[in-house]
């Protein structure tokens, strides 16, 4: 994305890089595709408006995720008065496959199946586990960045991540059977 102006140009580049990540985080938080799209769009718009306030050297990626999370929390607070039932809407069968078009068809299929299983498992996690898995394992934010984002100590992030991974391992036990064998091969 190209935004005129030095800072905006930089922001456009960062948004390009983390766009899928923002969308994934929004999906994990909202569990609704439309809400996720709105969250991402609103996040980007607020970032563009507020880019001048971003100090040089600041972590723009972390900043974007913080904006998105704040918007989400505000929406959650507003919706509490009138709870809404949302449906999981994660059927993006062609999207996942587009990511790895260079793989052979079988690998592509396996990858898609695994991705669907992982998505489903993550969506079954409690809220606090879902987002920490995404922020750490998919977005690779540091413990300190996550701690700042979630407004909690870094130690809490680590222990929460450990519990989240433990729960995820349990949910993905059958999927991990195959992966485990591959991992063992790596260790040996």
């Amino acid at each position: 994305m190209t935004f005129p102006g030095e800072k905006r140009s930089f922001l456009g580049q960062v948004i390009d890089e983390v766009f899928d990540g923002l969308y994934g985080y929004a999906m994990v938080l909202s569990r609704d595709r439309t809400d996720a799209e709105d969250l991402v769009q609103e996040t980007c718009m607020r970032a563009v408006k507020a880019i001048e306030s971003l100090e040089p050297g600041s972590n723009a990626k972390s900043w974007l995720f913080t904006i998105l999370r704040n918007i989400w929390l505000n929406q959650v607070r507003q919706r509490r008065a009138a709870p809404k039932i949302v449906e999981l809407d994660v059927d993006e069968s062609t999207l996942g496959m587009a990511v790895e078009s260079s793989k052979d068809p079988h690998a592509l299929y396996v990858s898609k199946v695994e991705r669907d299983q992982v998505r489903e498992a993550i969506q079954q996690l409690p809220d606090e586990f879902r987002e920490i898995i995404v922020l750490r394992e998919y977005e690779e934010l540091s413990y300190q960045e996550i701690a700042t984002l979630l407004d909690c100590p870094a130690g809490t992030v680590m222990s929460r991540l450990g519990r989240a991974r433990s729960k995820l391992r349990s949910l993905l036990s059958s999927t991990l059977g195959l992966t485990d064998r591959r991992a063992k091969g790596v260790l040996e």
Partner: peptide, 9 residues
């Protein structure tokens, strides 16, 4: 292996 978890439209 499942990165990215979601691909934005």
């Amino acid at each position: 292996e499942t990165r990215p978890l979601y691909l934005a439209p």
